[in-house]
Write a protein that binds this DNA or RNA. Structure first.
Length: 481
RNA sequence: CGGGGUGUGGCGCAGUUUGGCUAGCGCGCUUGAUUUGGGAUCAAGAGGUCGCAGGUUCAAAUCCUGUCACCCCGACCA
C-alpha cells in the first residue's frame, strides 16, 4: 500500500540506526550541511525546537536566581593557558585567530571552546568582598571545538549552548548549587523533553577538565547507546587559584572563592530525536513541538471546510497553543505523512463529513489513536490530549530505559550485554581509571554515571565487576554517543 | 585520525569497468484542468559547465594526479 511506500523513504531503525538518524534530521528539514566542515545550518524547524528548549530552561534559571550575560567569543592565548588541566583537556580542539585584517596578531586569540577562562578573568575583577557573592550568571552562546567527526546536533564543531558560571563564598554553597542545577536539568529533561535520565557523578576520567566533580544526566537512546544530556561541575577552587578570584571575608581574611559551571547544548535535540523517533520519523513532545497541532482540511474547496479549519485554529491559538492549518496544495495522504515525519504531536482532520456531523477527527502521533471530537469539546479536549501525549511519551521512554538497565552478576554477562549494545549495566566498581580503560578496550563501554556519595551503599566485601578489587562505587557503564 | 563508500538539474539514481556524436530516468517544480478521509490523474513546460583544480587525448561524466565535501564503521570528545 501507499503507507509502505512512505516508510521506505527513511531507513528503518532496525536496519541502520545511524542512517535512520541522518535521514530524519534531513527529511524533517531541521538542519542542512554548510560549506564549513563540521558546521551545520539549523533551519527554522530545528531552531524552533531549540527556542522552546531555551525558553523552558531560561525560565528555570531565572527562577533559581540566575541572570544572563554575554562574554566575548575570543580568548587571548595566555588567558586560556592558566588552568593546567583545563588546557590539557581543550587544547587539541581549539581554533585560533592569528590575523586581524592584514596584520598578524601579537598574541593569538582562541575562539572559545567554553568560557570558564574568560569569565573567571572577569570575575577576579568583579569579586572583592563577601558582599559581592554569590555571582549567579548564565550565558547563551555558541562555542567552537575542532571536531574530527561530526553529526548533526550530536557533535558539530560549532554548537549552541548555555553555560552557567557561579561563584560562592563556601564549598557547601557551591556544591549545593552544582546539585541544584543538575536537578533542574533532570526535571527539565523529564517534564519538558519527556526523556527520563540517570543522575550521578562522572568518573575521574570522564569529568570536566578542571573540575573537582562532575554531575551528569545520562539518557538511553533507542539503539541502546547512552547520551550525556547535560553536566554540572563543582569546580572547587581550581579556577579561583589560577585566575586569582579572592574575596575579603566578614572576618577580614582574603579567601579564594568556590565555583560551579553547568551547561546543555543543541545536542539535546539529538537526544530528542533518538529517544522518541520511530520508523515514520520524528516524534516531538508537545512542550517542545514548534507546531503542536496541525489541522488538515480535506477537500478544502467544499462547503465551509476551510472556514471551519480557520475557526478551530483561531480558537486554539487563543488558548495559547501552537497551531497551523496545512493549506498546501497536496494530497491529503501526503500531508498526513508529512505531519508524522515532522513529529507533530496532534493532527486534526476536518472534511465535508465532519462539517455535516459537527465534529473533527484527532489523531495522536505517539500512539496513532483516533478520536472523534465534537466542535464544542475541541477547546477543552485538545489541551488535555496534548497533556496526555506529553505524559505518555515520558512513560514510554521510561519503560524503554528501564528495560535497558541490566544488573549483571559477573564480567562475562557485562561483556555479553555490550556485544549487543543493549544498554546500561549497573555494577559495583573499584573507581580506578586503569580498570575503566581496560573495560573500555575490552567491551567498548565507557563509564557514564555513578551513584553519588550519599546514594552509595555497598555491602562489605563486594568486589569490582572487572578487576576484583574492593568495590567503591555503583557505576553505570554503556556504549555512548 | 584509520578502514570502507558516495559526489551527475531541487531530491533519489543510471551511465564510468571498455573515452565517441545532442548526458538519461523517476520524484519534485511551473501552468491549466479534474481531484482530495493515508503519498492522485491528464496535458503542456522549465531546469545540468557531471564536487573542484590540473593533466592525458582529435575527443573526458568516463582515464591519470591532486584536492574538497558528505555518509557508514572504528579510535577521540558535550
Amino acid at each position: 500500500m501507499a503507507k509502505k511506500e512512505f516508510v521506505e523513504q527513511i531507513t528503518s531503525q532496525e536496519e541502520n540506526f545511524s542512517q535512520w538518524y541522518t535521514d530524519v534530521v534531513r527529511k524533517t528539514d531541521m538542519v542542512d550541511y554548510s560549506l564549513v566542515k563540521g558546521c551545520m545550518v539549523i533551519k527554522p524547524y530545528g531552531y524552533g525546537v531549540w527556542e522552546l528548549i531555551q525558553h523552558e530552561l531560561d525560565s528555570r534559571f531565572k527562577a533559581t536566581g540566575h541572570k544572563n550575560a554575554y562574554f566575548p567569543l575570543l580568548i587571548p592565548e595566555s588567558l586560556l593557558m592558566k588552568e593546567a588541566e583545563h588546557v590539557e583537556g581543550f587544547a587539541p580542539e581549539v581554533a585560533w585567530v592569528t590575523q586581524g585584517g592584514t596584520e598578524p596578531l601579537q598574541e593569538r586569540l582562541a575562539i572559545r571552546p567554553t568560557s570558564e577562562t574568560i569569565i573567571c578573568s572577569m570575575y577576579s575583577n568583579w569579586v572583592q568582598s563577601y558582599r559581592d557573592l554569590p555571582v549567579l550568571m548564565n550565558q547563551w552562546c555558541n562555542v567552537l571545538r575542532w571536531e574530527k567527526t561530526t553529526r548533526p546536533f550530536l557533535r558539530t564543531s560549532e554548537f549552541l549552548w548555555q553555560e552557567g558560571h557561579t561563584v560562592h563564598a563556601t564549598e557547601e554553597e557551591a556544591v549545593e548549587e552544582t546539585e541544584r542545577m543538575i536537578n533542574v536539568y533532570r526535571e527539565f529533561a523529564e517534564n519538558v523533553l519527556a526523556i527520563p535520565v540517570i543522575v550521578g557523578n562522572k568518573s575521574e576520567k570522564e569529568k570536566f577538565a578542571g573540575a573537582v566533580r562532575t554531575y551528569t544526566i545520562e539518557a538511553m537512546m533507542h539503539d541502546g547507546r547512552a547520551l550525556q544530556m547535560g553536566t554540572s561541575h563543582f569546580l572547587g577552587q581550581n579556577f579561583a587559584k589560577s585566575y586569582d578570584i579572592k574575596y575579603l571575608s566578614k572576618e577580614g581574611r582574603q579567601e579564594y572563592v568556590w565555583q560551579t559551571s553547568w551547561g546543555v547544548s543543541t545536542r539535546l535535540i539529538g537526544g530528542l530525536i533518538m529517544v522518541h523517533g520511530d520508523d515514520r520519523g520524528l516524534k516531538l513532545p508537545p512542550k517542545v513541538a514548534p507546531t503542536q497541532v496541525m489541522i488538515i482540511p480535506i477537500a478544502a474547496h467544499k462547503g465551509g471546510v476551510t472556514e471551519k479549519a480557520h475557526e478551530i485554529r483561531d480558537m486554539l491559538l487563543d488558548k495559547g497553543l501552537r497551531v497551523e492549518v496545512d493549506e498546501r496544495d497536496q494530497s491529503t495522504g501526503w500531508k498526513f505523512n508529512d505531519c508524522e515525519m515532522k513529529g507533530i504531536p496532534l493532527r486534526i482532520e476536518i472534511g465535508p463529513k465532519d462539517i455535516e456531523a459537527g465534529h473533527v477527527v484527532t489523531v495522536r502521533r505517539d500512539n496513532f489513536e483516533k478520536k472523534t471530537v465534537e466542535w464544542n469539546d475541541i477547546a477543552s479536549e485538545v489541551p488535555s490530549l496534548l497533556d496526555d501525549i506529553q505524559k505518555n511519551m515520558l512513560e514510554m521512554a521510561r519503560e524503554h530505559m528501564e528495560e535497558r538497565i541490566f544488573e549483571v552478576s559477573d564480567y562475562g554477562e557485562f561483556k555479553k550485554v555490550m556485544e549487543d549494545t543493549s544498554g546500561f549495566v549497573r555494577v559495583p566498581w573499584c573507581n580506578e581509571t586503569e580498570c575503566e580503560l581496560e573495560i573500555k578496550a575490552d567491551t567498548g563501554a565507557t563509564s557514564r554515571c555513578m551513584l553519588t556519595e550519599e546514594e552509595t551503599h555497598i555491602p562489605e566485601g563486594t568486589k569490582c565487576i572487572h578487576c576484583g578489587k574492593p568495590a567503591k562505587k555503583i557505576m553505570y557503564f554503556a556504549k555512548a554517543y
